[in-house]
Structure formats: structure tokens, C-alpha cells
């Protein structure tokens, strides 16, 4: 039997994910926060063939020396700068501009929150930031609460993808917003990347089965006892979910349906 795990594209009629003319063969995106060891992060990236990671921008702690995370991210991996910490469009725009000016590219994940309990993204401010940064030539991937009207505004504002949350960020609750994510998958003509709340490989596989174009995972991997094993499990799950989506799973039925032929029984 052929091994489909290493190169599913050769076995199934799939198209690569294209974001702003960049081709991604791997639909598993990794967030780099909360890793206890940067070496482990590097191993996760290498073992799973990750092609894009998010990083955040912060003031340097002048009191202690820490090795920079960029030392552990291979140069071939695309950096997606996250505007986390921004409380409004203006702050997010500043982070994006600093990063671009400093020579770290024009890809930005807009993440704007001004609620410290639920950490929900502010869709209105996100739309504003997306519009301004897209006009400046940024490739904008906005993290958002899965609302159809907001997603349509993001499309108009020039977003390159839409990144709805699965559930509360860092909660590991999975796809609590499933029905609303499905609406975006059906109605929005941009790649849908489920971001936030995915807590297990099965949840990631399910997101892909229902038609998400990619998933972004961070906490579930970074805070696991063995992040490398969990990253590999997520990688396989994303691939499995994608294959299941492409293969068009049959619908659920509410009664029994025999798998074996119902004729030619031995007692006939």
C-alpha cells in the first residue's frame, strides 16, 4: 500500500494553499509563544515541515540576556508578525510598520484585543487596521471573531485570509464556534484559517474536515509535556483532515446501514 503520509499531494488531487501569491504545501501553521525551550520549538518546526510561524514584537528586557527566537526559526520559514498586545487599530498598525521598516517583511497577523478576561478579538478595530495596512502593501491575515458581516468587511478591506477563532484563545476548547466557522467557509471567498482554541489533533482534523484551509495552533503544542510529539500529531491530523475533506465524507445517518452485503447469507 502506498504511504500517503509524506506527500499527500502526489496521491490526491489537491491544490496548494495560496496566500498573496505565496504557495504553502503545509496547512499547519504554528504559533511560537509559551515554548519552554526554543530548541524544542526548532525541532517542532523541522519535524513537521512547518512553512509559516507567528512571532510577536516586544520591548527588550535589558536586565537579562535571552537568546532571540529568530535564531531558532529556519530562514526558509515565513515570519508572520502578530500584533498581539495591540488594544486598537492604531497600536496594531504601529507594530506592523515597525516590523516592516526594520526589514522583517510585510506579512502581519492582526490581533487586537481590549478585553483581558476573555481575550476576544475586536472585529471593528481589526477591520480598520486591515484596511489601512492593506493599502500600504501589507499582506494582512486578520484574527477575528467568526461573524459573517465582519468577515465580509475584512474581504472589502483587503484581507489576504480570514482567521476565525475556534474558541477562547489558549483555552484548548476546540471548535466551539463550529457553526459560525462553517458559515465563513461557505460564504467567504478567501482562505479560512482556524486560529485559537484548538486543543487537540482531533479538533484540528475536524476543522480541516469541515473545509478550513489551514489551522494555526500554539498553546496545545507549546504547553504539552512533549511538544515535539504533539506537533507531529497535529501535523498528521491536519493532513488527515484535509484528505477527508477532499475525499468528501458520506453524510451521517440516523439508523443502521449494513456494511456487508444483505444477501447470500449461509442460512438462505
Amino acid at each position: 500500500m502506498e504511504n500517503v503520509r509524506n506527500n499527500p499531494a502526489e496521491n490526491v488531487d489537491d491544490k496548494p494553499l495560496i496566500i498573496a501569491d505565496t504557495i504553502f504545501n503545509n496547512r499547519f501553521f504554528l504559533g511560537t509563544g509559551k515554548f519552554k525551550s526554543k530548541q524544542e520549538l526548532e525541532t517542532c518546526i523541522k519535524k513537521t515541515g512547518i512553512e509559516i510561524v507567528t512571532v510577536a514584537l516586544r520591548r527588550i528586557d535589558l536586565e537579562r540576556h535571552e537568546e532571540n527566537i529568530l535564531e531558532y526559526i529556519p530562514h526558509s520559514v515565513k515570519l508572520l508578525v502578530n500584533t498581539s498586545g495591540a488594544r486598537n487599530a492604531e497600536e496594531a498598525i504601529r507594530i506592523a510598520r515597525i516590523s516592516k521598516e526594520a526589514g522583517y517583511g510585510n506579512w502581519v497577523k492582526i490581533e487586537i484585543m481590549n478585553d483581558s478576561k476573555y481575550l476576544l478579538p475586536d472585529n471593528n478595530e481589526t477591520i480598520k487596521a486591515t484596511e489601512i495596512l492593506s493599502k500600504e502593501g501589507f499582506v494582512v491575515l486578520p484574527y477575528m471573531f467568526p461573524d459573517l458581516y465582519a468577515a465580509r468587511e475584512l474581504v472589502k478591506a483587503g484581507a489576504a485570509t480570514v482567521m476565525p477563532l475556534g474558541s477562547f484563545i489558549g483555552s484548548n476548547q476546540g471548535l466551539k464556534a463550529e457553526e459560525f466557522i462553517k458559515v465563513l467557509i461557505n460564504e467567504i471567498d478567501l482562505p479560512i484559517i482556524v486560529d485559537a482554541g484548538i486543543g487537540s489533533p482531533s479538533q484540528a482534523a475536524y476543522a480541516m474536515e469541515i473545509g478550513a484551509d489551514a489551522v494555526l495552533v500554539n498553546t496545545a503544542i507549546a504547553t504539552a509535556s512533549d511538544p515535539v510529539s504533539i506537533a507531529r500529531a497535529f501535523s498528521l491530523a491536519v493532513e488527515a483532515g484535509r484528505l477527508a475533506y477532499l475525499g468528501k465524507l458520506p453524510k451521517e445517518k440516523n439508523k443502521g446501514n449494513a456494511s456487508s452485503p444483505l444477501s447470500g447469507f449461509l442460512y438462505e
Partner: peptide, 10 residues
Amino acid sequence: IELVTFVGGG
């Protein structure tokens, strides 16, 4: 002067 750099983030 503000000195900033990249750190791990989701």
C-alpha cells in the same frame, strides 16, 4: 529610545 525585538507569540 525604544529597543524591541521578536519573541514567541501566537
